[in-house]
Design a protein around this nucleic acid. Structure first.
Length: 493
RNA sequence: CGGGGUGUAGCGUAGCCCGGUAUCGCGCCACAUUUGGGAUGUGGAGGUCGUAGGUUCGAAUCCUGCCACCCCGACCA
Protein backbone atom coordinates (compact mmCIF):
# COMPACT_ATOMS: atom_id res chain seq x y z
CA UNK A 1 0.00 0.00 0.00
CA UNK A 2 1.44 3.33 -0.96
CA UNK A 3 1.21 5.79 1.86
CA UNK A 4 -0.25 9.01 0.61
CA UNK A 5 -3.76 9.55 -0.61
CA UNK A 6 -4.14 11.28 -3.98
CA UNK A 7 -4.47 15.05 -3.52
CA UNK A 8 -7.88 16.64 -3.82
CA UNK A 9 -6.40 19.46 -5.83
CA UNK A 10 -4.90 17.09 -8.37
CA UNK A 11 -7.68 14.60 -8.94
CA UNK A 12 -10.78 15.03 -6.84
CA UNK A 13 -12.63 11.94 -7.98
CA UNK A 14 -9.58 9.73 -7.63
CA UNK A 15 -9.11 11.13 -4.13
CA UNK A 16 -12.72 10.27 -3.32
CA UNK A 17 -12.55 6.73 -4.69
CA UNK A 18 -9.29 5.98 -2.95
CA UNK A 19 -10.46 7.46 0.32
CA UNK A 20 -13.61 5.33 0.37
CA UNK A 21 -11.53 2.22 -0.12
CA UNK A 22 -8.57 3.06 2.08
CA UNK A 23 -10.69 4.22 4.99
CA UNK A 24 -12.46 0.85 4.86
CA UNK A 25 -15.86 2.31 4.09
CA UNK A 26 -16.84 0.30 1.03
CA UNK A 27 -15.58 -1.57 -1.98
CA UNK A 28 -16.89 -2.76 -5.29
CA UNK A 29 -18.45 -6.19 -5.46
CA UNK A 30 -18.63 -8.93 -8.05
CA UNK A 31 -21.85 -7.40 -9.34
CA UNK A 32 -21.52 -4.34 -11.51
CA UNK A 33 -22.54 -1.16 -9.77
CA UNK A 34 -23.17 -2.82 -6.43
CA UNK A 35 -20.99 -2.18 -3.42
CA UNK A 36 -20.02 -3.97 -0.28
CA UNK A 37 -20.37 -1.60 2.65
CA UNK A 38 -17.60 -2.60 5.03
CA UNK A 39 -17.98 -2.70 8.81
CA UNK A 40 -16.44 0.71 9.41
CA UNK A 41 -18.56 2.35 6.73
CA UNK A 42 -21.65 0.55 7.89
CA UNK A 43 -21.09 1.77 11.45
CA UNK A 44 -21.39 5.33 10.21
CA UNK A 45 -24.57 4.48 8.31
CA UNK A 46 -25.97 2.86 11.45
CA UNK A 47 -25.34 6.04 13.38
CA UNK A 48 -27.16 8.03 10.74
CA UNK A 49 -30.02 5.56 10.78
CA UNK A 50 -30.31 5.62 14.54
CA UNK A 51 -30.62 9.38 14.64
CA UNK A 52 -32.96 9.69 11.69
CA UNK A 53 -35.13 6.91 13.03
CA UNK A 54 -35.39 8.71 16.34
CA UNK A 55 -36.39 11.90 14.55
CA UNK A 56 -39.02 10.12 12.45
CA UNK A 57 -40.54 8.59 15.55
CA UNK A 58 -40.54 11.90 17.34
CA UNK A 59 -42.61 13.29 14.49
CA UNK A 60 -45.14 10.49 14.83
CA UNK A 61 -44.00 7.96 12.25
CA UNK A 62 -43.73 4.22 12.68
CA UNK A 63 -41.72 1.69 10.73
CA UNK A 64 -43.10 -1.10 8.56
CA UNK A 65 -41.76 -3.25 5.77
CA UNK A 66 -43.08 -3.72 2.26
CA UNK A 67 -41.84 -6.30 -0.24
CA UNK A 68 -38.84 -6.05 -2.51
CA UNK A 69 -40.81 -7.26 -5.53
CA UNK A 70 -43.52 -5.29 -7.21
CA UNK A 71 -45.91 -6.66 -9.86
CA UNK A 72 -44.92 -5.08 -13.12
CA UNK A 73 -48.43 -3.81 -13.75
CA UNK A 74 -48.37 -1.66 -10.61
CA UNK A 75 -45.71 0.58 -11.98
CA UNK A 76 -47.80 1.68 -14.93
CA UNK A 77 -50.73 2.86 -12.85
CA UNK A 78 -49.32 6.30 -12.30
CA UNK A 79 -48.35 7.72 -15.67
CA UNK A 80 -45.40 9.97 -14.89
CA UNK A 81 -44.10 7.49 -12.33
CA UNK A 82 -43.61 4.77 -14.98
CA UNK A 83 -42.00 7.21 -17.29
CA UNK A 84 -39.52 8.16 -14.62
CA UNK A 85 -38.53 4.70 -13.49
CA UNK A 86 -39.25 2.21 -16.30
CA UNK A 87 -35.84 2.76 -17.86
CA UNK A 88 -33.96 1.58 -14.79
CA UNK A 89 -35.88 -1.37 -13.42
CA UNK A 90 -34.47 -4.83 -12.79
CA UNK A 91 -37.08 -7.42 -13.81
CA UNK A 92 -37.65 -10.90 -12.43
CA UNK A 93 -38.99 -13.19 -15.13
CA UNK A 94 -38.39 -16.72 -13.77
CA UNK A 95 -38.44 -18.47 -10.44
CA UNK A 96 -36.26 -21.50 -10.97
CA UNK A 97 -32.91 -22.69 -12.29
CA UNK A 98 -31.91 -26.11 -13.49
CA UNK A 99 -28.72 -27.96 -14.28
CA UNK A 100 -27.48 -27.14 -17.75
CA UNK A 101 -27.28 -29.79 -20.47
CA UNK A 102 -23.51 -29.86 -20.42
CA UNK A 103 -23.53 -30.30 -16.65
CA UNK A 104 -21.24 -27.35 -16.17
CA UNK A 105 -23.59 -25.05 -14.39
CA UNK A 106 -27.15 -23.90 -14.04
CA UNK A 107 -29.47 -22.24 -16.52
CA UNK A 108 -32.81 -20.51 -16.22
CA UNK A 109 -35.56 -23.09 -16.44
CA UNK A 110 -37.76 -21.95 -19.32
CA UNK A 111 -40.70 -23.81 -17.78
CA UNK A 112 -40.52 -21.60 -14.73
CA UNK A 113 -41.61 -18.39 -16.36
CA UNK A 114 -43.64 -16.07 -14.14
CA UNK A 115 -47.19 -15.36 -15.19
CA UNK A 116 -46.69 -11.75 -14.26
CA UNK A 117 -43.17 -10.45 -14.20
CA UNK A 118 -41.96 -8.71 -11.06
CA UNK A 119 -39.80 -5.68 -10.82
CA UNK A 120 -37.32 -5.06 -8.06
CA UNK A 121 -38.49 -1.88 -6.33
CA UNK A 122 -36.80 1.31 -7.51
CA UNK A 123 -38.99 2.98 -4.84
CA UNK A 124 -42.12 1.69 -3.16
CA UNK A 125 -44.94 4.13 -3.87
CA UNK A 126 -46.85 1.64 -5.97
CA UNK A 127 -46.87 -1.33 -3.58
CA UNK A 128 -47.49 0.92 -0.67
CA UNK A 129 -50.42 2.76 -2.20
CA UNK A 130 -51.98 -0.48 -3.37
CA UNK A 131 -51.80 -1.57 0.27
CA UNK A 132 -53.02 1.73 1.67
CA UNK A 133 -56.20 1.26 -0.33
CA UNK A 134 -57.11 -1.49 2.13
CA UNK A 135 -55.96 0.37 5.19
CA UNK A 136 -57.84 3.59 4.66
CA UNK A 137 -61.59 3.94 4.70
CA UNK A 138 -62.34 6.92 6.88
CA UNK A 139 -60.84 10.21 7.97
CA UNK A 140 -60.39 8.38 11.28
CA UNK A 141 -57.68 6.25 9.64
CA UNK A 142 -55.74 9.37 8.78
CA UNK A 143 -53.10 10.55 8.87
CA UNK A 144 -51.20 7.37 8.12
CA UNK A 145 -47.53 7.94 8.88
CA UNK A 146 -45.26 5.09 7.86
CA UNK A 147 -41.57 4.77 7.15
CA UNK A 148 -39.53 1.85 5.92
CA UNK A 149 -35.82 1.13 5.91
CA UNK A 150 -35.05 -0.81 2.78
CA UNK A 151 -32.82 -1.46 -0.16
CA UNK A 152 -33.83 -0.40 -3.65
CA UNK A 153 -32.45 -1.02 -7.11
CA UNK A 154 -32.08 1.44 -9.94
CA UNK A 155 -30.17 0.21 -12.94
CA UNK A 156 -27.89 3.18 -13.40
CA UNK A 157 -25.55 3.56 -16.33
CA UNK A 158 -22.67 4.90 -14.37
CA UNK A 159 -22.08 4.23 -10.71
CA UNK A 160 -19.83 5.52 -7.96
CA UNK A 161 -19.40 4.18 -4.46
CA UNK A 162 -22.12 5.67 -2.23
CA UNK A 163 -23.00 8.48 -4.63
CA UNK A 164 -24.77 6.34 -7.16
CA UNK A 165 -24.91 2.57 -6.88
CA UNK A 166 -27.26 0.11 -8.53
CA UNK A 167 -28.52 -1.13 -5.21
CA UNK A 168 -28.61 1.31 -2.33
CA UNK A 169 -29.95 1.49 1.18
CA UNK A 170 -32.37 4.17 2.19
CA UNK A 171 -35.44 5.02 4.13
CA UNK A 172 -38.67 5.95 2.46
CA UNK A 173 -41.51 7.58 4.33
CA UNK A 174 -45.00 7.29 2.87
CA UNK A 175 -47.83 9.22 4.41
CA UNK A 176 -51.51 9.74 3.68
CA UNK A 177 -53.56 12.74 4.81
CA UNK A 178 -57.09 14.02 4.77
CA UNK A 179 -56.23 17.43 3.40
CA UNK A 180 -53.89 19.04 0.97
CA UNK A 181 -52.67 21.50 3.58
CA UNK A 182 -51.79 18.76 6.00
CA UNK A 183 -49.91 16.80 3.33
CA UNK A 184 -47.93 19.87 2.33
CA UNK A 185 -47.15 20.57 5.98
CA UNK A 186 -45.87 17.00 6.33
CA UNK A 187 -43.69 17.39 3.23
CA UNK A 188 -42.17 20.57 4.56
CA UNK A 189 -41.75 19.12 8.03
CA UNK A 190 -39.73 16.20 6.70
CA UNK A 191 -37.54 18.47 4.62
CA UNK A 192 -36.85 20.34 7.84
CA UNK A 193 -36.07 17.12 9.67
CA UNK A 194 -33.54 16.27 6.97
CA UNK A 195 -32.01 19.72 7.10
CA UNK A 196 -31.73 19.55 10.86
CA UNK A 197 -30.12 16.14 10.67
CA UNK A 198 -27.64 17.27 8.04
CA UNK A 199 -26.63 20.35 9.95
CA UNK A 200 -26.58 19.02 13.49
CA UNK A 201 -25.23 15.54 12.93
CA UNK A 202 -23.42 15.57 9.61
CA UNK A 203 -22.14 19.13 10.24
CA UNK A 204 -23.30 19.78 6.71
CA UNK A 205 -24.97 23.09 5.88
CA UNK A 206 -27.77 22.64 3.37
CA UNK A 207 -30.04 24.85 1.32
CA UNK A 208 -33.71 24.04 1.64
CA UNK A 209 -35.68 24.50 -1.50
CA UNK A 210 -38.18 23.32 -4.06
CA UNK A 211 -37.25 21.56 -7.29
CA UNK A 212 -38.12 22.97 -10.66
CA UNK A 213 -40.68 21.01 -12.66
CA UNK A 214 -37.86 19.43 -14.60
CA UNK A 215 -36.11 17.98 -11.57
CA UNK A 216 -39.25 16.91 -9.77
CA UNK A 217 -39.87 13.33 -8.63
CA UNK A 218 -41.82 11.21 -11.10
CA UNK A 219 -45.38 11.35 -9.81
CA UNK A 220 -45.05 14.30 -7.43
CA UNK A 221 -46.76 17.68 -7.49
CA UNK A 222 -43.83 19.29 -5.74
CA UNK A 223 -40.43 18.08 -4.64
CA UNK A 224 -38.73 19.74 -1.69
CA UNK A 225 -35.06 19.09 -1.17
CA UNK A 226 -31.93 19.82 0.75
CA UNK A 227 -28.89 20.67 -1.34
CA UNK A 228 -25.32 20.58 -0.12
CA UNK A 229 -22.07 21.79 -1.62
CA UNK A 230 -19.04 19.55 -1.93
CA UNK A 231 -15.42 20.71 -1.72
CA UNK A 232 -14.95 20.59 -5.48
CA UNK A 233 -17.72 23.12 -5.93
CA UNK A 234 -20.30 20.64 -7.14
CA UNK A 235 -23.72 20.39 -5.55
CA UNK A 236 -25.21 17.23 -4.13
CA UNK A 237 -28.87 16.55 -3.49
CA UNK A 238 -28.86 15.12 0.00
CA UNK A 239 -32.53 14.44 0.60
CA UNK A 240 -35.94 14.87 -0.98
CA UNK A 241 -39.47 15.19 0.30
CA UNK A 242 -42.36 14.96 -2.13
CA UNK A 243 -45.87 16.30 -2.03
CA UNK A 244 -47.72 13.73 -4.12
CA UNK A 245 -51.06 15.50 -4.27
CA UNK A 246 -53.76 12.94 -4.97
CA UNK A 247 -51.82 11.33 -7.79
CA UNK A 248 -51.16 7.96 -6.19
CA UNK A 249 -54.48 7.96 -4.37
CA UNK A 250 -56.21 8.31 -7.72
CA UNK A 251 -53.98 5.77 -9.43
CA UNK A 252 -54.62 3.19 -6.71
CA UNK A 253 -58.12 4.33 -5.84
CA UNK A 254 -57.46 5.24 -2.23
CA UNK A 255 -60.55 7.07 -0.97
CA UNK A 256 -61.78 7.97 2.48
CA UNK A 257 -65.08 9.03 3.99
CA UNK A 258 -64.71 12.63 5.08
CA UNK A 259 -65.96 14.09 8.33
CA UNK A 260 -68.66 15.81 6.35
CA UNK A 261 -69.91 12.53 4.89
CA UNK A 262 -68.33 12.88 1.46
CA UNK A 263 -65.86 10.62 -0.29
CA UNK A 264 -62.48 11.95 -1.32
CA UNK A 265 -59.08 10.77 -2.48
CA UNK A 266 -56.37 11.04 0.17
CA UNK A 267 -53.37 13.31 -0.10
CA UNK A 268 -49.92 11.76 -0.07
CA UNK A 269 -46.28 12.45 0.62
CA UNK A 270 -43.09 10.48 0.34
CA UNK A 271 -39.59 11.35 1.46
CA UNK A 272 -36.21 9.70 1.55
CA UNK A 273 -32.51 9.84 2.22
CA UNK A 274 -30.06 7.17 1.21
CA UNK A 275 -26.53 5.87 1.62
CA UNK A 276 -25.70 8.76 -0.68
CA UNK A 277 -25.45 10.75 2.55
CA UNK A 278 -22.25 8.83 3.17
CA UNK A 279 -20.84 10.31 -0.01
CA UNK A 280 -21.91 13.78 1.09
CA UNK A 281 -20.29 13.31 4.48
CA UNK A 282 -17.02 12.19 2.95
CA UNK A 283 -16.83 14.85 0.27
CA UNK A 284 -17.86 17.74 2.47
CA UNK A 285 -15.26 17.46 5.23
CA UNK A 286 -12.40 15.13 4.43
CA UNK A 287 -8.88 16.24 3.51
CA UNK A 288 -5.71 14.93 1.91
CA UNK A 289 -4.87 12.97 5.05
CA UNK A 290 -8.13 11.08 4.98
CA UNK A 291 -11.59 11.13 6.40
CA UNK A 292 -12.78 13.86 8.73
CA UNK A 293 -15.81 12.71 10.67
CA UNK A 294 -18.03 14.88 12.83
CA UNK A 295 -17.97 13.45 16.38
CA UNK A 296 -21.72 12.82 16.35
CA UNK A 297 -21.39 10.26 13.57
CA UNK A 298 -17.91 8.88 14.22
CA UNK A 299 -17.91 5.16 15.11
CA UNK A 300 -14.89 5.85 17.29
CA UNK A 301 -14.87 9.32 18.83
CA UNK A 302 -11.67 9.07 20.79
CA UNK A 303 -8.72 6.75 20.31
CA UNK A 304 -6.03 6.32 22.92
CA UNK A 305 -2.59 5.40 21.63
CA UNK A 306 0.07 4.31 24.12
CA UNK A 307 3.71 5.15 23.58
CA UNK A 308 6.02 2.88 25.47
CA UNK A 309 9.23 0.93 25.73
CA UNK A 310 8.92 -2.46 27.22
CA UNK A 311 6.20 -4.42 28.91
CA UNK A 312 6.45 -2.59 32.21
CA UNK A 313 5.86 0.83 30.72
CA UNK A 314 2.90 -0.47 28.72
CA UNK A 315 1.45 -1.86 31.93
CA UNK A 316 1.49 1.52 33.62
CA UNK A 317 0.13 3.36 30.63
CA UNK A 318 -2.60 0.75 30.13
CA UNK A 319 -3.76 1.19 33.67
CA UNK A 320 -4.19 4.89 33.23
CA UNK A 321 -5.68 4.51 29.76
CA UNK A 322 -8.27 2.08 31.06
CA UNK A 323 -9.15 4.48 33.80
CA UNK A 324 -9.67 7.32 31.32
CA UNK A 325 -11.57 5.03 28.99
CA UNK A 326 -13.92 4.00 31.76
CA UNK A 327 -14.65 7.60 32.67
CA UNK A 328 -15.27 8.60 29.06
CA UNK A 329 -17.52 5.64 28.41
CA UNK A 330 -19.57 6.49 31.43
CA UNK A 331 -20.59 9.75 29.78
CA UNK A 332 -21.37 8.06 26.49
CA UNK A 333 -18.18 8.72 24.54
CA UNK A 334 -17.04 5.92 22.22
CA UNK A 335 -13.40 5.22 23.01
CA UNK A 336 -10.91 2.77 21.67
CA UNK A 337 -7.64 1.95 23.35
CA UNK A 338 -5.26 0.68 20.72
CA UNK A 339 -2.63 -1.25 22.60
CA UNK A 340 -1.63 -3.48 19.72
CA UNK A 341 2.09 -4.04 19.81
CA UNK A 342 2.11 -4.96 16.15
CA UNK A 343 2.13 -1.37 14.99
CA UNK A 344 4.16 1.61 16.04
CA UNK A 345 2.57 4.81 17.31
CA UNK A 346 3.36 6.76 14.16
CA UNK A 347 1.61 4.13 12.08
CA UNK A 348 -1.45 4.31 14.30
CA UNK A 349 -1.54 8.10 14.12
CA UNK A 350 -1.67 7.96 10.35
CA UNK A 351 -4.23 5.16 10.41
CA UNK A 352 -6.69 6.97 12.66
CA UNK A 353 -6.28 10.14 10.67
CA UNK A 354 -7.17 8.20 7.54
CA UNK A 355 -10.24 6.87 9.30
CA UNK A 356 -11.32 10.24 10.57
CA UNK A 357 -11.32 9.61 14.32
CA UNK A 358 -12.08 13.08 15.71
CA UNK A 359 -9.78 13.01 18.71
CA UNK A 360 -6.61 11.14 19.52
CA UNK A 361 -5.08 10.85 22.97
CA UNK A 362 -1.44 9.82 23.07
CA UNK A 363 0.09 8.74 26.36
CA UNK A 364 3.75 8.04 26.96
CA UNK A 365 6.20 7.87 29.83
CA UNK A 366 6.59 11.65 29.89
CA UNK A 367 2.83 12.01 30.29
CA UNK A 368 2.77 9.55 33.15
CA UNK A 369 5.45 11.51 34.88
CA UNK A 370 3.75 14.87 34.40
CA UNK A 371 0.14 13.68 34.66
CA UNK A 372 -0.63 14.90 31.15
CA UNK A 373 -1.88 13.50 27.85
CA UNK A 374 -1.31 14.67 24.32
CA UNK A 375 -4.47 15.57 22.42
CA UNK A 376 -4.60 15.68 18.64
CA UNK A 377 -7.63 17.02 16.81
CA UNK A 378 -8.42 15.48 13.46
CA UNK A 379 -10.32 18.49 12.14
CA UNK A 380 -7.53 21.03 12.66
CA UNK A 381 -4.61 18.56 12.80
CA UNK A 382 -3.36 20.40 15.87
CA UNK A 383 -1.76 18.86 18.94
CA UNK A 384 -1.76 20.08 22.50
CA UNK A 385 -0.70 18.84 25.89
CA UNK A 386 -3.41 18.61 28.48
CA UNK A 387 -2.61 18.59 32.17
CA UNK A 388 -4.98 16.31 34.04
CA UNK A 389 -4.22 18.12 37.27
CA UNK A 390 -7.47 19.20 38.87
CA UNK A 391 -9.69 18.94 35.80
CA UNK A 392 -12.52 16.66 34.81
CA UNK A 393 -11.30 14.88 31.74
CA UNK A 394 -14.84 13.88 30.77
CA UNK A 395 -16.09 17.48 30.81
CA UNK A 396 -13.04 18.60 28.91
CA UNK A 397 -13.44 15.99 26.19
CA UNK A 398 -17.19 16.40 25.91
CA UNK A 399 -16.63 20.11 25.34
CA UNK A 400 -13.84 19.45 22.91
CA UNK A 401 -15.94 17.02 20.86
CA UNK A 402 -18.69 19.65 20.70
CA UNK A 403 -16.17 22.19 19.59
CA UNK A 404 -14.86 19.86 16.89
CA UNK A 405 -18.41 19.27 15.68
CA UNK A 406 -18.99 23.03 15.57
CA UNK A 407 -15.69 23.74 13.85
CA UNK A 408 -16.33 21.21 11.12
CA UNK A 409 -19.74 22.73 10.53
CA UNK A 410 -18.54 26.30 10.41
CA UNK A 411 -15.71 25.40 8.09
CA UNK A 412 -18.21 23.84 5.71
CA UNK A 413 -20.53 26.80 6.12
CA UNK A 414 -17.76 29.30 5.37
CA UNK A 415 -16.81 27.33 2.33
CA UNK A 416 -20.36 27.35 1.07
CA UNK A 417 -20.74 31.06 1.73
CA UNK A 418 -17.56 31.76 -0.21
CA UNK A 419 -18.68 29.47 -2.99
CA UNK A 420 -22.11 31.00 -3.39
CA UNK A 421 -22.18 33.79 -5.93
CA UNK A 422 -24.73 35.97 -7.63
CA UNK A 423 -24.71 36.28 -11.38
CA UNK A 424 -26.53 39.10 -13.16
CA UNK A 425 -25.62 38.42 -16.75
CA UNK A 426 -25.04 35.42 -18.94
CA UNK A 427 -21.33 36.25 -19.26
CA UNK A 428 -20.95 36.54 -15.53
CA UNK A 429 -22.80 33.27 -15.02
CA UNK A 430 -20.50 31.37 -17.37
CA UNK A 431 -17.42 33.03 -15.96
CA UNK A 432 -18.26 32.05 -12.36
CA UNK A 433 -19.15 28.53 -13.38
CA UNK A 434 -15.84 28.05 -15.16
CA UNK A 435 -13.49 29.75 -12.76
CA UNK A 436 -15.05 29.04 -9.41
CA UNK A 437 -18.03 26.71 -9.48
CA UNK A 438 -20.26 26.48 -6.45
CA UNK A 439 -23.80 27.74 -6.13
CA UNK A 440 -24.86 30.59 -8.38
CA UNK A 441 -27.95 32.56 -7.48
CA UNK A 442 -29.44 33.94 -10.66
CA UNK A 443 -32.71 34.99 -12.20
CA UNK A 444 -34.58 32.51 -14.35
CA UNK A 445 -37.70 32.98 -16.40
CA UNK A 446 -39.39 29.91 -14.93
CA UNK A 447 -39.60 27.83 -18.10
CA UNK A 448 -38.34 24.31 -18.63
CA UNK A 449 -37.00 25.31 -22.06
CA UNK A 450 -34.68 27.89 -20.57
CA UNK A 451 -33.56 25.52 -17.83
CA UNK A 452 -32.69 22.86 -20.38
CA UNK A 453 -30.95 25.30 -22.63
CA UNK A 454 -28.77 26.42 -19.72
CA UNK A 455 -28.00 22.84 -18.87
CA UNK A 456 -27.07 22.09 -22.45
CA UNK A 457 -24.78 25.11 -22.66
CA UNK A 458 -23.10 24.87 -19.27
CA UNK A 459 -23.95 21.52 -17.62
CA UNK A 460 -25.32 23.53 -14.72
CA UNK A 461 -28.81 22.71 -13.46
CA UNK A 462 -31.24 24.40 -11.16
CA UNK A 463 -30.56 22.77 -7.83
CA UNK A 464 -33.53 24.38 -6.19
CA UNK A 465 -35.65 27.42 -5.71
CA UNK A 466 -34.62 28.27 -2.16
CA UNK A 467 -37.41 28.39 0.39
CA UNK A 468 -36.11 31.70 1.70
CA UNK A 469 -35.53 33.30 -1.71
CA UNK A 470 -36.27 37.01 -1.51
CA UNK A 471 -38.79 38.61 -3.81
CA UNK A 472 -36.68 40.66 -6.15
CA UNK A 473 -37.32 42.02 -9.63
CA UNK A 474 -34.81 40.83 -12.19
CA UNK A 475 -34.23 39.50 -15.66
CA UNK A 476 -33.53 35.89 -16.64
CA UNK A 477 -29.81 35.49 -17.24
CA UNK A 478 -30.41 33.67 -20.50
CA UNK A 479 -33.55 35.15 -22.02
CA UNK A 480 -33.80 38.46 -20.21
CA UNK A 481 -37.45 37.81 -19.45
CA UNK A 482 -38.77 39.09 -16.13
CA UNK A 483 -38.23 37.05 -12.97
CA UNK A 484 -39.18 37.74 -9.36
CA UNK A 485 -36.65 35.68 -7.50
CA UNK A 486 -33.26 34.10 -7.82
CA UNK A 487 -32.85 30.34 -8.10
CA UNK A 488 -29.75 28.33 -7.26
CA UNK A 489 -27.73 26.89 -10.13
CA UNK A 490 -24.77 24.53 -9.91
CA UNK A 491 -23.08 21.64 -11.56
CA UNK A 492 -24.19 18.65 -9.59
CA UNK A 493 -23.48 15.06 -8.74
C1' C B 1 -25.64 2.77 -23.80
C1' G B 2 -21.56 5.41 -27.17
C1' G B 3 -16.00 6.91 -27.24
C1' G B 4 -11.20 6.16 -24.84
C1' G B 5 -8.15 3.53 -21.22
C1' U B 6 -6.85 -0.38 -17.73
C1' G B 7 -6.81 -5.55 -15.76
C1' U B 8 0.11 -9.39 -13.88
C1' A B 9 0.88 -12.10 -5.60
C1' G B 10 -3.42 -8.81 -0.54
C1' C B 11 -2.14 -3.55 -2.79
C1' G B 12 0.73 -0.68 -6.43
C1' U B 13 3.58 -2.02 -10.68
C1' A B 14 7.79 -3.77 -14.82
C1' G B 15 7.56 -7.07 -18.82
C1' C B 16 3.52 -6.91 -24.04
C1' C B 17 5.43 -3.30 -29.65
C1' C B 18 9.72 -7.62 -31.12
C1' G B 19 6.25 -15.05 -28.19
C1' G B 20 10.70 -19.01 -24.83
C1' U B 21 7.36 -19.87 -18.10
C1' A B 22 7.25 -13.24 -14.54
C1' U B 23 10.39 -7.71 -12.27
C1' C B 24 10.40 -4.31 -8.34
C1' G B 25 8.18 -1.76 -4.05
C1' C B 26 4.61 -2.04 -0.07
C1' G B 27 2.13 -5.55 2.79
C1' C B 28 2.43 -10.78 4.94
C1' C B 29 5.40 -14.80 8.05
C1' A B 30 9.99 -15.81 11.42
C1' C B 31 13.93 -13.84 14.42
C1' A B 32 16.68 -9.74 16.42
C1' U B 33 17.16 -4.65 17.47
C1' U B 34 13.38 -0.76 17.93
C1' U B 35 8.73 2.40 19.86
C1' G B 36 6.73 10.89 21.33
C1' G B 37 4.60 10.94 13.39
C1' G B 38 3.73 5.48 8.67
C1' A B 39 11.12 1.63 12.16
C1' U B 40 15.70 -1.31 10.56
C1' G B 41 18.31 -5.69 9.39
C1' U B 42 18.49 -10.87 8.03
C1' G B 43 15.81 -14.98 6.29
C1' G B 44 11.08 -16.76 4.12
C1' A B 45 6.10 -17.70 1.96
C1' G B 46 2.88 -16.17 -1.72
C1' G B 47 1.22 -15.90 -9.05
C1' U B 48 -5.01 -20.24 -12.93
C1' C B 49 -0.68 -13.05 -15.72
C1' G B 50 -9.35 -10.71 -15.37
C1' U B 51 -12.02 -14.77 -18.00
C1' A B 52 -13.33 -18.20 -22.17
C1' G B 53 -11.74 -19.67 -26.73
C1' G B 54 -8.23 -19.37 -31.01
C1' U B 55 -3.16 -19.07 -33.55
C1' U B 56 1.67 -21.49 -32.32
C1' C B 57 6.39 -26.62 -30.88
C1' G B 58 5.63 -22.81 -27.12
C1' A B 59 1.20 -17.16 -25.20
C1' A B 60 1.39 -12.41 -19.71
C1' U B 61 2.99 -11.09 -24.80
C1' C B 62 -0.56 -12.07 -31.13
C1' C B 63 -6.24 -12.63 -32.49
C1' U B 64 -11.66 -12.97 -30.96
C1' G B 65 -15.70 -13.04 -27.44
C1' C B 66 -17.09 -12.01 -22.45
C1' C B 67 -16.51 -9.70 -17.43
C1' A B 68 -14.95 -5.81 -14.21
C1' C B 69 -12.96 -1.05 -13.06
C1' C B 70 -11.41 4.16 -14.41
C1' C B 71 -12.04 8.75 -17.51
C1' C B 72 -15.27 11.57 -21.01
C1' G B 73 -20.51 11.92 -22.91
C1' A B 74 -26.22 10.62 -22.64
C1' C B 75 -29.46 9.10 -17.77
C1' C B 76 -30.13 9.56 -12.49
C1' A B 77 -31.00 9.82 -5.30
Amino acid sequence: MSKGLPKRSEDYSLWYNELVKRADLAENSAVRGCMVIKPYGYSIWEKMQAELDRMFKETGHTNAYFPLFIPKSYLSKEASHVEGFAKECAVVTHYRLKNSEDGKGVVVDPDAKLEEELIVRPTSETVIWSTYKNWIQSYRDLPLLVNQWANVVRWEMRTRLFLRTTEFLWQEGHTAHASKEEAIAETVQMMNVYAQFAEEFMALPVVKGVKSENERFAGAEDTYCIEALMQDGKALQAGTSHFLGQNFAKAFDVKFATKEGGLDHVWGTSWGVSTRLMGALIMAHSDDNGLVLPPKLAPIQVVIVPIYKGEEELQKISEKAHDIMKQLRRVGITVKFDDRDTHKPGWKFAEYELKGVPLRIAMGPRDLENNTVELARRDTLTKSTLSLEGISITDYILDLLDEIQATIYSKALNFRTEMTSEANSWEEFQEILESKGGFIAAHWDGTTETEEKIKELTKATIRCIPIDAKEEEGACILTGKPSNKRVLFARAY
